[in-house]
Simulated scan of single mutants.
Amino acid sequence: MEIIGRGFLARNLASLGTRHPHVTALAAGVSRTGDVGQDPYQREAALLYETIERCRRLDRTLLFFSTASASMYGGTGAPGREDGPVYPQTPYGHHKLALETVVRLSGVRHLILRLSHVLGADQPAHQMLPILIGAVRSGRVEVHRGACRDVIDVADVVPVIDTLLLAGVHDQVVNVASGVAVPAERIIDHVAARIGGPLERRFVDRFSHYQVSLEKLSELTGGKAGQRFSKDYYKDVIDGCLNAAL
């Protein structure tokens, strides 16, 4: 596998570096869901166009990473399905959906993976869990009442990618997630319990409840992937990150 990028996801994909020689994974670009301005989005789009041309010239499969977060599925009010309607909630969601369209219409062989919140050691400071850890340590956190998050360990994501590629899946959009919608308050509770200390909570009504469907992932892999994780899986994932960070 050819891996474009040097960040968190790219580093974890390195274990597949000697496998899937026909695949180019674009693991670079915008990785924060907040407002970053237009320049980073434009740079990612330009890199995607270059990568598409490279894949076309060399007859390679493009592996592109999109999002299965609330930025994509938070406005549906229904299980987030790859073939269902989506109403992106943020500029990040709109951007990823637009790039998905570019990939699908490019004519190159491709696989688009919509990833939920991928957690692991050495994550960038601007991503969800490091931000939350910093807030809890500061003693003040903003709680989005009614919001939820689907989190998955990067160590569980990489084998799923391997399984999809071994199965020859292409020209598809596929969710990769735990399948468990965890209320944001429970995630905060768990981090706070692990770190300890007083915590002031400021509640904000920002409803974004969603459920990521894994039906397609299961079908495409013959049941080898796409099984929902346990309801307490998120605790194990967070504990692994905290053990590495504390």
Rank of each mutant, 00 (worst) to 15 (best):
E2Q: 13
E2W: 00
E2V: 08
I3C: 00
F8Q: 03
F8D: 05
H20K: 10
T24H: 01
R32P: 00
T33Q: 11
T33N: 06
G37C: 11
P40D: 12
A45Y: 09
L47K: 05
E50L: 14
T51A: 06
T51W: 04
I52G: 06
R57S: 14
L62Y: 09
L63Q: 01
M72N: 13
M72A: 14
T76M: 10
G80W: 04
R81V: 10
G84Q: 04
Y92F: 15
G93E: 08
K96G: 06
L97T: 13
A98C: 04
R104W: 00
S106T: 10
G107Y: 09
G107S: 10
R109N: 13
L113F: 11
V118P: 01
V118F: 01
A121F: 00
D122P: 00
D122G: 01
H126S: 14
Q127T: 15
M128I: 12
I133G: 01
S138W: 11
V141T: 13
C148D: 14
V151D: 05
V151Y: 06
D153R: 07
V154A: 03
V154C: 03
V157K: 00
V160E: 12
L165S: 05
A167C: 14
A167M: 11
H170Y: 06
Q172F: 04
Q172E: 15
V173N: 03
A177Y: 08
G179T: 05
P183T: 10
A184R: 15
R186T: 08
A192Q: 12
A193Q: 15
A193T: 15
E200H: 13
R201F: 14
H209M: 08
Y210C: 12
Y210M: 11
Y210Q: 12
Q211M: 08
S213Y: 07
L214F: 12
K216A: 07
L217S: 07
S218E: 11
L220H: 03
T221V: 13
A225F: 05
Q227D: 13
D236N: 03
V237S: 02
D239K: 07
G240S: 09
G240Y: 04
A245P: 00
A245G: 00
